[in-house]
Design a protein around this nucleic acid. Structure first.
Lengths: 342, 342
DNA sequence: CAACTGACGGCAAGGGGTTGCCAAGTTGTT
DNA sequence: AACAACTTGGCAACCCCTTGCCGTCAGTTG
C-alpha cells in the first residue's frame, strides 16, 4: 500500500534524492551511467513519481480537464476522442467531468479541479461570461462551442451551417421554419437562432422560435406539439436528441415526416443515422474540434490575453430522409393563441 | 494566478496556520467565533484549500476515478449518471477516464491516477486478472460488469437475463441462435456466451458463436454476414451497437428483420429504441449499478480482502420489433465452409 | 482559594518531490 | 604542472497543508 518514494530509490541506488529527481525530470542533468542505474533500481522497486507532490512545487500536472455540459449527449463522443488523441501525443492525461447541465455543478467542479490540472477545456459551458473570465484568470482555458472575447475557442461554423440548412429547406419549397430552442444559458442556442434568422432573412424565409427546451429526446414531445400548434412545415431542432424526440411524437400523432413536416437537427449523432426516417442534420468534424482545442490549450502558455485564437471549423449538412418537399396544401396556421412558453 | 494559501489567511486573520487548517478540516476543534472569523477572511481572500497538498499528508482526495472501456458506448451513460449521483451525495468528485478499449491505455491511466484518487471504479475492464489484483493492492477497487474473486463487483444478472432471451426466442419457435461475440478480453463477452449456452441447453436450443467483434456499429456488417452465412434465424449480438450495425447490414442485403432473422442486443441504449425496427434488448437499471458501485467503493475501508461483496442486479428484457416468429421455411444452413474468423 | 479539567490555539515536523547554489571531480589548455 | 571550464552530485529550502504534542487560560470543584 505504501508507495515507494524517491527516498527509497535514492538510498537503494546510493545517491541523493535530488539526483533521483533529476534522473526523472531532467535527463540531461545527470550522467548517463548514474541515470541508468537509478532507472534500474526504480524499476525494481516499482517506483513511480507521485504527480501530486511534483505538482505541488512545479505547478505542472500533465493533466487537462474537459468539462462537458452533459456527458450523456452522444454529440461529445467525437469531441472527446479528438481531445484524447491529441492529449496522448503530448502525454497528457485527459480528465472528463460532467456538469450535468447545471452551471452550479460546473462551477464547483472547476473550482475543485482547478489546482489539480494545467488547464480547462470547457465544452458548451453553461457558465455566465463573468465566471468564464474568472476561470481564465486562474488557468488556461479553451472554449468549445462557445465564444467569448479574450478567450481561446473552437467552434463549428454555424453561420455557414445555418445558411446551408435554410437553403436546403428553401429549395424544398418551405416558406418558413420553426426553431426549437436549446437551453436559455446555452451560447450555442443563441448563436443558432441568430444564424437561422439572418440566413432566413437573406432568402426571404420566415422564422419563429419556440422553447427553450432541455435538449433531450424526452423533451421532444412538448417541442413537437408546440411546432405543430404553430403550423410549421419545417422544424429545426436545437440538437439531434431533441429532433428525434420530435419525430417520435409526430409519429405518435400520425403526422408524417417528411411529407407533412420536415425535421432538421444538429450534431449528427449516431442515432440520427439509425432512426426512421433518418435525420437530416448539421454535422462537422467534431474530432478535429476536440483535437484543435487541446492543441490550443497546450500552447496557451505562449500567448497573451489579447492574442487568443478563435478557431472556426467547417460544418457539413448531412441529408437524410427527414427533410422533403413542403406540403402543397399548407397546414393551417393556428390562431397562435397558445404558443409554448418562450 | 498565485493562489492564496493558508498562510495568507492565517496572517490576515491573526491566527496560526494550524488554526486555519483546523477551521476547515475539523470544525469542532476550534471555537465558533474564531472559526467564523477565519471563514470570513478566507472568503474575502477567495481562499480554497489545495487538494494536492492536503492529500499529500492525509491521503484523502475526496475523488474517485471511473475507468470505462470505451466512453463512446452509450451504455455507460446511465452508469455514469448513477455513479455521479452517489458521489455527489458524499461530496466526492468523480473523474471519468477512457481506456479506449486498450488494456495498455487502461493500465497507464490507472497508474497515473493511482496516487491522485481514493479508489477506482473499473467498468468492463479489459485488464487481465493479475493486473486487477495489482490495482486492488494499491487502491480500493470496485469492478463493474466484471467479477473476480476477492474484489468487490457490481454486475447485472446475466444468467437470468440470458435465460429470458433464450426463452423469448424459443417461444417464437427458434430452434437455435448465433451469438456474435464481443472482444476477446471482455469478461462480459465470456459470461454472456456461457450463460447463453447453459440457458439454451436447458430448453434444447442450439447455440453457436462467431466473432470476436469490436462492439461497434461499424463491425455489424461483418457480423451480419457471418450470421447469415451461418444460416441463423436468431442472432444475439454482444451489445446494442453491434446489433444495430447488424440490422443495417441485413437491411442492405434485403434480409428482413424480424421476418427472416430475429435480432437481440444487450444494454438497451437510446438508439435501440429509435432504430427501425426497434431492437429487442436486455436492459437493466444501470443507474443503480453505478450508484451501487460508488456506494461499495466509499465503504471499502471497512471491509477486509476476503469480505468483498458481489452485487448482482436484475435485468429486464425489453421487447421490441426486432424479434419475431422463426421463419417457417428455414433458410438453408450453408455448408459451414466459410465461418467468420473466430 | 488552590487544584484540576477541558477547550483552544500554536509550534514544528512531516509528506514526496523540485531546484538554486555550492563543492568536488574531470577534462582540457597553455 | 598549474589553472580554467565543465560536469556531476549533494545540501537544504520550499510547495501547501495536516496533525501530534504542548502550553495557556478560563471555568469547575471541593
Amino acid at each position: 500500500m505504501a508507495r515507494t518514494t524517491i527516498y527509497d530509490v535514492a538510498s537503494a541506488a546510493g545517491v541523493a534524492t535530488s539526483t533521483v529527481s533529476r534522473a526523472f525530470s531532467r535527463p540531461g542533468r545527470v550522467s548517463a551511467v548514474t541515470r541508468e542505474r537509478i532507472m534500474r533500481v526504480a524499476a525494481e522497486l516499482d517506483y513511480r513519481p507521485n504527480p501530486h507532490a511534483r505538482a505541488l512545487l512545479s505547478g505542472k500536472h500533465q493533466t487537462v480537464a474537459m468539462v462537458v455540459s452533459d456527458i450523456t449527449n452522444p454529440h461529445y463522443f467525437e469531441l472527446i476522442r479528438g481531445a484524447e488523441m491529441r492529449a496522448r501525443v503530448s502525454e497528457y492525461t485527459l480528465l472528463l467531468v460532467n456538469a450535468e447541465e447545471s452551471p452550479r455543478v460546473e462551477w464547483e467542479q472547476i473550482q475543485r479541479l482547478s489546482p489539480a490540472v494545467d488547464g480547462f477545456l470547457l465544452a458548451a459551458s453553461r457558465l455566465p461570461d463573468e465566471n468564464l473570465q474568472q476561470v481564465a484568470a486562474q488557468r488556461p482555458v479553451v472554449l468549445i462551442s462557445r465564444e467569448l472575447p479574450g478567450l481561446a475557442s473552437v467552434v463549428l461554423d454555424h453561420g455557414e451551417g445555418c445558411r446551408q440548412i435554410v437553403a436546403h429547406l428553401a429549395s424544398l419549397g418551405h416558406r418558413d421554419l420553426v426553431y426549437l430552442a436549446g437551453p436559455r444559458n446555452s451560447w450555442m442556442a443563441a448563436t443558432r437562432w441568430a444564424a437561422l434568422q439572418s440566413a432566413a432573412e437573406q432568402v426571404g424565409m420566415g422564422v419563429r422560435r419556440i422553447g427553450p427546451f432541455t435538449p433531450k429526446a424526452t423533451q421532444g414531445g412538448a417541442a413537437a406539439d408546440g411546432a405543430v400548434n404553430d403550423g410549421a412545415t419545417a422544424v429545426v431542432a436545437h440538437n439531434d436528441l431533441l429532433a428525434i424526440g420530435v419525430m417520435q411524437r409526430l409519429s405518435q400523432r400520425g403526422i408524417r415526416v417528411p411529407e407533412d413536416v420536415s425535421v432538421v437537427g444538429f450534431d449528427d449523432i449516431f442515432a440520427a443515422d439509425v432512426c426512421t426516417p433518418g435525420l437530416t442534420t448539421l454535422g462537422g468534424a467534431h474530432v478535429d474540434v476536440g483535437r484543435a482545442a487541446v492543441e490550443l490549450l497546450l500552447t496557451a502558455g505562449s500567448r497573451t490575453a489579447d492574442d487568443q485564437p478563435r478557431v472556426v471549423l467547417p460544418t457539413a449538412l448531412v441529408l437524410r430522409r427527414s427533410t422533403g418537399n413542403a406540403p402543397t396544401t399548407r397546414p393551417r396556421r393556428s390562431r397562435g393563441s397558445q404558443r409554448s412558453a418562450s
